[in-house]
Amino acid sequence: MATPNIPLWEVFIRSRNGLAHKHVGSLHATDATLALQAARDIYTRRGEGLSIWVVPSNAITASDPSEKGMMFEPAESKIYRHPTFYDVPEEVGHM
């Protein structure tokens, strides 16, 4: 008999250094409670984090990688959004 499919979850962990939750991988669990427990066992065996989020994988909407050119082009042409675009004389010092 084929094994029935158990829902997939994405796991996000916030490490102790205060950074944002970061995607670390995925796992299978029948519900959110079990997903959290499995995430603790699979992804935090060595103190990797202080907080875990689990999200059903099918709840994530992702951008289409084949359209990444069009998607990110608007930012690529705007070099004036970066501080290095602007000239500040040496004498002024660090700014």
């Binding site: 094994t3 029935p4 991988g25 699979i42 065996r45």
Partner: peptide, 18 residues
Amino acid sequence: GHGLYLYAAAETLGSSRE
């Protein structure tokens, strides 16, 4: 744990872990 990370990686190619 290593087995589970790897099954998850394999699943991204379109076959289910089961």
